[in-house]
């Protein structure tokens, strides 16, 4: 019982990580109509940049993290201008498949450069055993994840709420056409959205790597669970993505500990299908008005 409870607690932490990626994906989806399937590999690449800065350049962990975050912001902008922006007339499905192609490319590059020695041990940002609560221990890493997630979500919330840039993002996400009409700089905002997405991904990868090790395909299953969380939450709802992701994190962690890895995957998939069948608009989404 204690084991399951602690699995549930670390599930919340993992769910928050999914939620941060999901947040980035939903933000892009709402403002551009594109589901970013490269989010996972972008995150992993950020993790590798951090790792390489430490091992190849000999930087301390904190400096490596700064390098990785800056590098991923630049990469996010580059991806937007090189891969996403050209030929918007090709349609959303074409652009969605471009993100898959990008994902393949980044994966191939990582395999080429780092594949041979993977998986790598990644240093934990915090040491120590964590906090004793009743008869089980909340690991230090989980506490860190919760703290970072809270800090990031708080910052984003304040940004969206109080800054002009944040308001512009919300306008773009709600009505891209109206945002254009009001003279908001759509290109710059989209580029910034990609930068933020990539940075969020890197943060997640750095938080995740100490427990899951670092390998080019680390994020594959995480991305799936994230997408499941997004569908659960209702596709276009930012709080929904967070809620859905935490549910997926807890459910998967508990079933993996109680049963097996396979069972965890199957149970989350079953959860996805059940929600799709019974509540197609997701937990916090709005139902469609046209029926077919």
């Amino acid at each position: 019982m204690g084991l399951l409870l602690s699995a549930g607690i670390s599930g919340i932490a993992v769910g928050l990580l999914y939620g941060m990626i999901g947040f980035a994906i939903v933000m892009l989806y709402k403002s551009t109509g594109v589901a970013n399937f490269a989010q996972g590999t972008l995150a992993t690449l950020g993790g590798f940049v951090c790792w390489a800065s430490m091992t190849d350049l000999g930087l301390p962990l904190w400096a490596a993290i700064v390098v990785a975050l800056v590098a991923s912001a630049v990469l996010g902008v580059a991806v937007y201008f090189v891969v996403i922006r050209p030929r918007p007339s090709a349609g959303n499905l074409n652009i969605t498949v471009r993100t898959l192609g990008l994902s393949l490319l980044l994966l191939a590059v990582m395999e080429w450069r780092w594949g041979a020695g993977a998986p790598y041990r990644f240093p934990a940002i915090v040491e120590g055993t964590g906090v004793q609560v009743a008869d089980f221990v909340v690991p230090a890493q989980s506490l860190l994840i919760a703290a970072v997630a809270a800090a990031i979500m708080g910052t984003l919330w304040a940004l969206f709420r109080y800054s002009n840039v944040g308001l512009s993002f919300r306008a773009m996400a709600e009505q891209p056409d109206t945002a254009r009409l009001l003279g908001l700089p759509a290109t710059r905002l989209s580029a910034a959205t990609w930068a933020i997405s990539a940075v969020l991904g890197t943060v997640v990868a750095i938080l995740l790597a100490p427990s899951s090790f670092l390998a080019p395909s680390t994020m594959e299953s995480y991305l799936l669970f994230t997408f499941t969380g997004i569908v659960l939450g209702g596709l276009t709802s930012l709080p929904g993505a967070l809620l859905g992701s935490v549910i997926v994190g807890v459910v998967s962690n508990v079933t993996i500990v109680a049963l097996s890895l396979e069972a965890g995957v199957l149970v989350v998939f079953a959860l996805l299908l059940v929600v799709m069948l019974l509540r197609p608009q997701g937990l916090l989404g709005r139902p469609e008005s046209v029926r077919l």
Binding site: L167, S168, R170, E174, D177, T178, L182, L184
Partner: peptide, 24 residues
């Protein structure tokens, strides 16, 4: 340009709608 159908930003407050109008 005040578009047909008003197109106010529904999830934003009125104050925020006004702020958006001043950004561009």
């Amino acid at each position: 340009h005040v578009p047909e159908g008003r197109r106010v930003l529904a999830d934003l407050t009125v104050e925020e709608n006004l702020r958006i109008g001043g950004i561009g």
